[in-house]
Lab assay of single mutants.
Amino acid sequence: MAEQVALSRTQVCGILREELFQGDAFHQSDTHIFIIMGASGDLAKKKIYPTIWWLFRDGLLPENTFIVGYARSRLTVADIRKQSEPFFKATPEEKLKLEDFFARNSYVAGQYDDAASYQRLNSHMNALHLGSQANRLFYLALPPTVYEAVTKNIHESCMSQIGWNRIIVEKPFGRDLQSSDRLSNHISSLFREDQIYRIDHYLGKEMVQNLMVLRFANRIFGPIWNRDNIACVILTFKEPFGTEGRGGYFDEFGIIRDVMQNHLLQMLCLVAMEKPASTNSDDVRDEKVKVLKCISEVQANNVVLGQYVGNPDGEGEATKGYLDDPTVPRGSTTATFAAVVLYVENERWDGVPFILRCGKALNERKAEVRLQFHDVAGDIFHQQCKRNELVIRVQPNEAVYTKMMTKKPGMFFNPEESELDLTYGNRYKNVKLPDAYERLILDVFCGSQMHFVRSDELREAWRIFTPLLHQIELEKPKPIPYIYGSRGPTEADELMKRVGFQYEGTYKWVNP
C-alpha cells in the first residue's frame, strides 16, 4: 500500500466541504435556525453545542446559521458558553472563530407547556436576519415526558411559513410498544414523516454505516452471507464503567431499553437485511423493517440478565456495585447486563442465532459485530482449526478484520490463527472521521433520513421486546451478580454456547 501524504486539518475539512456542497440537498446560502429545546441540560452542553461548534469551526454548516437555545432556566448566552465550552476542545488559535460562533447564538427562556412562551420564541426567531423565511431545525434534547406539549406548541407557534421545518427526537422513544405508539401517533398528527428525525446516534458511527458497503459492494461476501456458512452472529456493546452516581436515570430504563432495543437491534438489521433497491432512505429502511418483521418476540429462556457488584480487589469506582450508587433505588432489580438470542425467521437466516450482548462495568470498552462461520467440513488438521470470524469493530479503534487459519512457519503443516486486517487509523491517516452527532446533524440539514429511525421500524423493535420488558417488570427477577471489570455473568457464556457459538479464547485482536 502506497504511503499517504499527511494533510493538514484545513485540507481534510476542505475535502469534506467539497463532498457536502456538491450535493443538491445542502442549501449552503439559505438562512437556517437550529433550535435546541432543553438548552440547559446535560445532553445540550456535552453533545449538541459542542457538535454545532465543530461543524461551524470546520465550515460545514450553511453560511447563515443561527443557534437558539430554549429552556425553562433563566440563562444568558454567557451562561450557555460557560457550561458548554469546556466540552468544545477549542484551541487558543480558534479564539476569534469561537467569538464568531457565540455571536450567532441567542437564548430564550420559557415554559414547555405555555403557548405564550412559544409565541415569544417565534418572535425572537423572526427578528433574526431573514428569520421569518429561514429553515428551522428543532432538536428535542428533553425528557420524553414533555415531548407531547413541546411538539404541539412548536407546531402551533414556531413553524417557518416559507422555509422547511424538521424536528429531531432523542431516544428513548417511549418505554414499550404502547407508549411508543402513543408518542408516534401524537407526533405524526403534527408533522409529516419526512419532517421527523428520530435519532439513534449509533447509526451515525462510521463502521455501522460501513456495514452496507461491506455487504453490498464486495462480491466475495454475497455468496457466504447466509445460514449455510454463518453459524452465529454476535452483536456486542461493552462499557468498562458503571453508573457513577447517575444511576437514578438509568434505573428508569435499564440496559435493554438503553442499548439493546435500539443500538444493537439497528446493527442487527444492517447485518441481516436484503440488498435495498438503492441507497435512498426509504429503500434502506424498507429492508430493515422486513428483517424486524421476521423476528419473533424474545423468549425468556433465551435471556440472561445481570447486575454488577463491587470488586473487592478493585480501586475507586470498581469497588462499588450498582446498588451502592446513592441515586439507585434500594434493592433495585434493574439489569445492567443483558444477553438475548433472537432468530430472523426467513430463508437466508433460518436457524442462525443472533446474540445481542450489552452491559456496564465490564472488562473493556468495545462495540462490534462478529460473524462466526461454520467449521470446515472434512477436517484434515486433527481438530487444530478454529472457526473463521469476520469482525466489524465499531469502537474504539474502528477496524474490519477476518480471523482465519494460516500455516505456522516451519517444517510442518501446523495451522495457527491469524488475521486479515483493515484498521482505519492506519489505512486512512488523512481522513477526519466525523463524530456520530456531527454526521447525523449534517444529515438533518441535508434532509437525508437514511440513518434515522422510521415509525414502522420503531414499532417493530418495541413489538419484539415489550413482552419481555413487561414480564421483567411484573416478576422482578433478581439479576445474576457479576463482578465489576469482569466479562459479565458466566451464564451468558453458557447461553451463547448452547445456541452454537464457540468461544476459543486463544486469539485476541490487537490494534496495530
Rank of each mutant, 00 (worst) to 15 (best):
A6P: 15
A6Q: 15
S8M: 08
R9V: 15
Q11H: 15
V12M: 15
G14E: 15
G14I: 09
G14M: 15
G14T: 15
I15S: 07
I15H: 09
L16E: 15
L16Y: 15
R17Q: 15
E19H: 15
E19V: 09
L20G: 00
L20T: 15
F21G: 08
F21Q: 09
Q22S: 14
G23M: 14
G23T: 15
D24T: 08
A25Y: 15
A25H: 14
F26V: 14
F26N: 11
F26H: 14
H27V: 14
Q28K: 14
S29L: 10
S29W: 11
I33Y: 12
I33P: 01
I35Y: 00
I35A: 08
I35W: 01
M37P: 08
M37Y: 12
G38Q: 00
A39Y: 02
A39N: 02
G41W: 04
G41K: 04
A44G: 04
K45G: 05
K47E: 01
I48R: 01
Y49D: 02
Y49L: 14
T51E: 09
T51M: 10
I52V: 14
I52D: 01
W53F: 06
W54D: 07
W54N: 09
W54F: 06
L55S: 09
L55A: 12
F56D: 01
F56A: 00
F56N: 01
R57H: 05
R57P: 04
R57Q: 05
L60N: 07
E63G: 12
E63C: 07
F66C: 08
V68Y: 05
G69E: 02
Y70F: 10
Y70C: 11
A71Q: 03
A71Y: 00
A71N: 03
S73I: 01
R74F: 15
L75V: 14
T76C: 11
V77F: 14
A78V: 11
A78I: 08
D79A: 09
I80M: 12
R81L: 14
Q83S: 14
E85M: 12
F87R: 06
F87Y: 15
K89D: 13
K89S: 13
T91H: 11
T91V: 15
P92L: 10
E93L: 08
E93M: 10
E93Y: 11
E93V: 09
E94S: 07
L96P: 15
L96A: 13
L98S: 03
L98E: 05
L98C: 07
E99K: 10
D100G: 10
D100C: 10
F101N: 00
F102V: 05
A103I: 10
S106A: 11
S106H: 12
V108D: 02
V108G: 02
A109V: 12
D114R: 10
Y118K: 07
R120K: 13
S123L: 14
H124L: 08
H124I: 12
M125A: 11
A127T: 14
L128A: 07
L128I: 15
L128Q: 12
L128Y: 09
H129S: 13
H129C: 13
L130E: 15
L130M: 15
G131F: 09
G131V: 09
G131A: 13
S132I: 10
S132T: 15
S132W: 12
Q133M: 13
A134G: 11
A134K: 10
N135L: 05
R136D: 00
L137I: 11
Y139E: 06
L140S: 07
L140N: 05
A141L: 00
L142T: 06
P143M: 01
P143G: 03
P144S: 06
T145N: 12
T145P: 08
T151K: 01
T151I: 10
T151D: 01
T151M: 12
K152R: 15
K152L: 14
K152H: 14
I154D: 05
I154Y: 02
H155G: 11
H155W: 10
H155M: 08
M159T: 13
Q161M: 14
I162Y: 12
I162M: 13
I162D: 13
W164P: 06
N165G: 13
N165I: 10
I168V: 08
E170W: 04
K171Q: 03
K171G: 02
K171Y: 04
R175M: 11
D176A: 00
L177W: 06
L177M: 13
Q178M: 12
Q178C: 14
Q178I: 15
Q178Y: 09
Q178S: 15
S180A: 06
S180H: 06
D181C: 11
L183D: 02
L183M: 07
S184I: 12
S188D: 07
L190R: 13
L190K: 12
L190F: 08
F191Y: 15
F191P: 02
R192K: 13
R192N: 14
E193W: 02
D194M: 08
Q195Y: 04
Q195K: 06
Q195P: 01
Q195A: 11
Q195E: 13
I196Y: 01
Y197S: 01
R198H: 03
I199A: 02
D200M: 01
D200A: 01
H201V: 03
Y202V: 01
Y202S: 01
G204Y: 03
K205I: 04
E206I: 07
M207I: 07
V208Y: 04
V208I: 11
L211K: 04
L211A: 01
M212L: 15
V213K: 05
L214C: 07
L214F: 14
R215G: 00
F216S: 04
F216D: 04
A217R: 02
N218G: 01
N218R: 04
N218V: 04
R219A: 11
I220A: 11
I220E: 02
F221R: 01
F221D: 00
P223F: 03
P223S: 09
I224F: 06
N226F: 06
R227Y: 09
D228V: 07
N229R: 02
N229A: 08
I230E: 03
I230Y: 00
A231H: 07
A231T: 08
A231L: 04
A231V: 06
V233A: 06
V233L: 05
I234K: 10
I234M: 14
T236P: 02
T236M: 05
F237G: 06
K238N: 00
K238H: 02
E239D: 06
P240C: 09
F241G: 06
F241K: 03
G242N: 06
G242A: 06
E244G: 08
G245H: 11
G245F: 09
R246K: 00
G247N: 05
G247W: 05
G247H: 06
G247P: 01
G248R: 06
Y249T: 02
Y249F: 04
Y249L: 00
Y249E: 03
F250S: 05
F250H: 02
F250G: 01
F250V: 00
D251R: 01
E252S: 10
E252F: 07
E252R: 10
F253A: 11
G254W: 00
